[in-house]
């Protein structure tokens, strides 16, 4: 099965994105039970900005990360391109 070869930089950017998404997830669950923690909300909003930047980086190597209008498509349509996460 011929699969798109991903450059080394992809793996580094993807790991950074996974790390930032983890921070966002942890803050989300924390804020669900501590909704008045101003500092955590500031961190959440800051990391959300960082995520946008990292998603853009990863998508340069990998193509769209999300659907439903959250990522731009390349041409031809590259959302459906392998490798999928479990194939990497």
């Amino acid at each position: 099965m011929a699969q798109k070869q991903l450059p080394k930089e992809f793996y580094k950017s993807m790991e950074e994105l996974q790390a930032v998404d983890f921070v966002i997830l942890e803050l989300t669950l924390y804020l669900d039970t501590h909704p008045n923690d101003e500092q955590a909300i500031q961190q959440f909003n800051h990391m959300t900005q960082v995520k946008q930047h990292l998603m853009y980086q990863v998508e340069q190597y990998y193509g769209p990360l999300q659907q439903f209008g959250n990522s731009y498509s390349g041409s031809p349509w590259n959302w459906k391109d392998a490798p999928w996460p479990w194939q990497i």
Partner: peptide, 13 residues
């Protein structure tokens, strides 16, 4: 609705 993100939550090797 739900939105799929084309990445694993944490690396699996």
């Amino acid at each position: 609705m739900w939105i799929y993100e084309k990445k694993l939550q944490y690396p699996v090797k």
